[in-house]
Design a protein around this nucleic acid. Structure first.
Length: 436
RNA sequence: CGGGGCGUGGCGCAGCUUGGUCAGCGCGCGUGUUUUGGGUACACGAGGCCGCCGGUUCGAAUCCGGCCGCCCCGACCA
């Protein structure tokens, strides 16, 4: 992308409405613009991040055997009346009517709809288990949207739903999603910790929220150092092995971890000093098992092995995709701006042509851009060098290639790594070699 | 939903208490010169129904009422 012809409106000053760092940086780096309270337009660079995050989520869901589908944003109220939540959900649910005066809702979640879809076609236990997911926009009419994209009213969410014939199966599905989640966050460079959450009417230890560590996170978290030592992505765990999943689950749930609301001072005191870790965190995912709550309420059963009807055991698993973009910035930034992890950066490289119009600079910069194009942002603007440096740091590209008149004549460029700040002067070929 | 605050060119703000060349400043934007590796300097210039509606007044950005929008704290939530 050529910056001179791109809608990436960076700002030198922070708009007054933005308080927390991710919100400020998202506005300043030209990633999003607010259209209404808690509702945002994703500009080109921001959309690329959102899509990169979604792609990682998708890849790990697929790797866990979940099937992607796409359910609509608008749902008939009928489904919600069936489960009883039309009345229960309250004002957070955006309700609307079509021209025929039919009641509709802009979906805040999809348990009813997936149950309905599933029951239409699945009638036997032999088709189970299955996990389905989609990545779709949701709307929850929060009383008080805040923190920019982290607590919006409209948000992009990955939500998955598991169907099993019995509790044992549901447990396996639950653990499978848990492992998929840990891998997902890790791939984004995030440290995530599953923390026991309220499990609702079902009880048990089958609801966890995933907290990622970020110095500016909204809640204080306390956890055992053990969480820093586990390698979820390594071949250690086979996501399709029940035994591995059990081992993994035990590992995840035996060590202490809690947000400040659920912090247990007594349990915390028992931890050895060297293992205590305190930090701040942001919830980016939530998994829970809810048994037959929806299948029973909505009259969904399949034929069991003995031919008798059985209400499937279900669970649901959410990841806040758009929230993650904000959370990533909370985790990765400095005074100058964003520091994108390579996996989600909108552009892997920024090519800064310090002197457009200079034959040598143009030749080298254009040449580099041709080779790196899809993942490179070419700053070809007629701006001062300082402006380009500042914007590149603000936007947080993992790599910067600085093409200036000084080195260009000799075929040299400066390669800068955003995260470490290291720079070195190299030839164009070795710059390319380092980046690709 | 309770409490607090704010709406003045694209962004950040001053002006409002003490109605009357107050529509202004910085940044940004345009043109020119300058500078040329970390947001350069100078000059000239474009750009505002002062959130909306109504009221008070000879006169309202400024006072009064209503409405809308946005932000912060709390309760609630991916």
């Amino acid at each position: 992308m050529r910056l001179s012809r791109s809608l990436v409106p960076t700002l030198k000053e922070t708009p007054a409405e933005a308080q927390i760092v991710s919100h400020r940086l998202m506005l300043r780096a030209g990633l999003v613009r607010q259209t209404a309270a808690g509702i945002y337009a994703w500009l080109p660079a921001g959309l690329r991040v959102l899509q990169n995050v979604a792609a990682i989520v998708r890849a790990e869901q697929d790797a866990a055997g979940a099937q992607e589908l796409l359910m609509p944003t608008i749902q008939p109220a009928e489904l919600w009346r069936e489960s009883g939540r039309y009345e229960d959900y309250g004002k957070e649910m955006l309700r609307l009517k079509d021209r025929h005066e039919r009641d509709l809702v802009y979906g805040p979640t999809n348990e009813e709809m997936i149950t309905d879809l599933f029951r239409q076609s699945v009638h036997s236990y032999r088709a189970l288990p299955q996990i389905l997911y989609h990545i779709q926009w949701k709307f929850r009419d929060e009383v008080r949207p805040r923190f920019g994209v982290m607590r919006g009213r409209e948000f992009l969410m990955k939500d998955a739903y598991s169907f099993d014939i019995d509790y044992a199966g549901a447990v396996v599905s639950y653990r499978r999603m848990m492992l998929a989640y840990m891998r997902t966050f890790r791939r984004m460079g995030l440290k995530a910790i599953p923390m026991r959450a309220e499990s609702g009417p079902i009880g048990g230890n089958m609801s966890h929220e995933f907290i990622i560590l970020a110095p500016t996170g909204e809640s204080a978290v306390y956890y055992d150092a053990a969480f820093e030592e586990i390698d979820y992505s390594a071949s250690g765990f086979n996501i399709f092995s029940d035994a591995d999943l059990e081992h993994f689950f035990t590992l995840m749930t035996t060590h202490y971890a809690a947000t400040d609301e659920k912090h247990d001072a007594a349990a915390w005191a028992e931890l050895t000093l060297g293992r205590k870790r305190e930090g701040r965190g942001i919830e980016v995912g939530h998994v829970f098992y809810f048994g037959t709550k929806y299948s029973a309420a909505m009259g969904f059963s399949v034929a069991g092995p003995d031919g008798r009807p059985v209400a499937p055991e279900m669970g649901s698993y959410g990841i806040g995709v758009s929230r993650l973009v904000g959370a990533l910035i909370e985790a990765f930034h400095d005074e100058a701006g964003i520091i994108w992890p390579d996996a989600v950066a909108p552009f892997r490289t920024a090519i800064l042509n310090l002197k457009p119009g200079d034959a040598a600079c143009d030749r080298i910069a254009e040449g580099l851009y041709e080779k790196l194009a899809p993942s490179a942002l070419y700053d070809d603007r007629d701006e001062r060098a300082g402006v380009k440096f500042a914007d590149a740091d603000l936007m947080g590209h993992p790599w910067q290639i600085v093409v200036g008149p000084r080195g260009a004549a000799a075929g040299r460029v400066e390669l800068k790594r955003r995260a470490s700040g290291e720079r070195e002067e190299v030839g164009t070929e070795s710059a390319l070699a380092r980046i690709i």
